[in-house]
Write a protein that binds this DNA or RNA. Structure first.
Lengths: 338, 338
DNA sequence: CTGAAAGCGCTTACAG
DNA sequence: CTGAAAGCGCTTACAG
């Protein structure tokens, strides 16, 4: 805001009696510069609260050192809502990891139906890569990013026949753990309330559910299976359908904590006690799980770690081209709902 | 990523047979250029999927066209949680408004105890201004921003003796509406569960609470008043204290939906029915209010409008220096909890 | 209406 | 270890 007189490395150079080159190198800690010179320059820079201009630096370096967090609000909402809590809980770890690595975080609230959205971020040099975290249309977005050879990383099971960075969790095991826990609690009519049927996460959790049932000598009943879209609203709807199709169900394995919360609302309204009449297990271990009443038994995926890996591995890819696909473990967190 | 051969305005100039100046002006829709020339240049640019390099543009223009969303996660958490839902719900409107105005949104996850944080955003030319939305230490941050003459806008009651942009809601009326509603429902022992006692929002809502009680000929009982920090945890704690201090209370006016949700957890656990035994009114009308069971009666502040105004008025200030302080109305949303 | 040229503030290959 | 100079890709005052 025009207050400072020392605004460029040229000013620092003048004050220190060296060249701009030397100032630039000193502030970037180049090994070419002697320690004494560096010290002198740093002292002057600090004294005047000097900060390097990033637009100039980025132009010269030909990189933005900025990552876009590509998201879009859940359908039917003007903006973000409780249904995007997953995204929020990841945000802290992503932003702090990026800032440790000296990258900025841009929020790209994309139009889910426009396949050209990456252009205005990438071709403008605004960002160096994308963290893709959309709850729906994931395959579509991955397709467009792959096609334009954009650097990106995704939360979720990698699609076959494509090569790109991803972080995902052991969904098969998560599904199995949830189901085994319910079986151990003596439940025999365990409903599966999945995410979208065509997403890898859902498929794998379903496979884990089936495996656990089979091991226990139980059959899989189609009337006990329904798919939603991760939201609490879909949890309510599916719960109603499940209760109609299978009034005798005694447990629900919901594929998200939000769906579990929605399901529990319906159960309460219908006079079914949780966990006495119907036990409920969620997925994600979002902060809402603790606050829920009763507190939700759920599958935890260590979101701080997920956020850190998303940031770290994307930057590694941007800087070195190394493609990383990591799978993190899933844990059962037992609370009161099951 | 090195795929494109047409990357600069010089390339477009070559292809079109005009100068770089003309290309630059045409793409920026300068009135100096004839429509035909513009058309020709735009066609070539579109054909080659050309996008202007923003680092160069920003350096030349001496502005970043980027706004920082300055936030910090709630204490005691590694990252963001349900307690930051307010922030999330504002994010959609802020980011879409900014993008309409051709500004980018940067997430600045600041260290709440470091008063120097704005420097690395402002003095580096990273951003042109800040949207300040921290649930705590607001006064502290405002002080540092004012001192360094940083352009910013705040959600909340403006502090006296300072001049800066703000968006806030009619908290007095909100407090009054909530309390009047409870009085109308026949409640006589209405507890006030405030946000931090030293924040303007809390003070004004308390004043509205007192005004409504006085009008109804009721006294204000100190044992019915407690202050928290907006979080669901503090809602649980305060509810316990209130029940101990005033076992006969029949209503609670919580200053946030999160506190209301926490309070309801405690009420459920103690066997008090909502709303039959204790009526509960929240504040904010976050998406959790609808999902709560029973759905929460609350005070709505039209968050999409808040987000839009925060973005719009900050940019107006950045571009013209006009200081805006707006107050938006508060509405009562009646659901089932009161 | 269009163009040549300077300038925005950095970085770095090249020369010493 | 240090400096002069070119270059990153735009914008725009100035000249025509």
């Amino acid at each position: 805001m025009g207050l400072k007189t020392v605004k460029t490395i040229a000013d620092i150079a003048r004050l220190t009696g060296v060249s701009k080159s030397t100032v630039s190198r000193a502030l970037n800690d180049s090994p070419l510069i002697s320690e004494e010179t560096k010290e002198r320059i740093r002292a002057v820079a600090k004294e005047h609260n000097f900060q390097i201009n990033v637009s100039a630096s980025r132009l010269s370096l030909q990189q933005s050192r900025t990552i876009a967090f590509a998201v879009h609000a859940q359908k039917n909402c003007g903006g973000f809502s409780l249904n995007d809590l997953f995204l929020l809980e990841l945000l802290g770890a992503i932003s702090s990891t990026l800032s440790t690595l000296h990258y900025d975080l841009l929020v790209a609230n994309i139009n889910p139906h426009d396949p050209a959205w990456p252009h205005e971020y990438l071709d403008t040099g605004r960002v160096d890569g994308f963290i893709l975290l959309t709850s729906t249309r994931k395959k579509f977005h991955i397709g467009t990013l792959v096609k334009m050879k954009a650097p990106f990383i995704v939360w979720g099971t990698p699609l076959p026949n494509y090569s790109y960075c991803s972080v995902n969790s052991d969904n098969f095991n998560g599904g199995r753990l949830a189901t085994e826990h319910l079986l151990q609690k003596g439940r025999r009519r365990i409903a599966f309330m999945g995410g979208p049927a065509d997403e890898g996460e859902t498929e794998q959790r379903y496979a884990g559910y089936v495996a656990a049932l089979k091991e226990a000598g139980q059959e899989v009943a189609p009337t006990l299976v329904r798919y939603g879209d991760w939201t609490s609203d879909s949890g309510m709807e599916r719960m109603q359908q499940l209760l109609e199709a299978s009034p005798d169900l005694d447990a629900v394995f919901a594929n998200s904590d939000l769906m579990a919360a929605g399901a529990m609302n319906v159960l309460h309204a219908r006079g079914r006690r949780v966990p006495q009449d119907v036990a409920v297990v969620g997925y994600d271990d979002l902060s809402i799980a603790r606050v829920n009443s009763p507190p939700l038994t759920t599958i935890s995926q260590n979101l701080p770690l997920v956020g850190k890996l998303l940031a770290q591995n994307l930057i590694q890819y941007v800087e070195t081209g190394v493609v990383t696909n990591v799978t993190i473990p899933a844990h059962l967190i037992v609370r009161e709902s099951a």
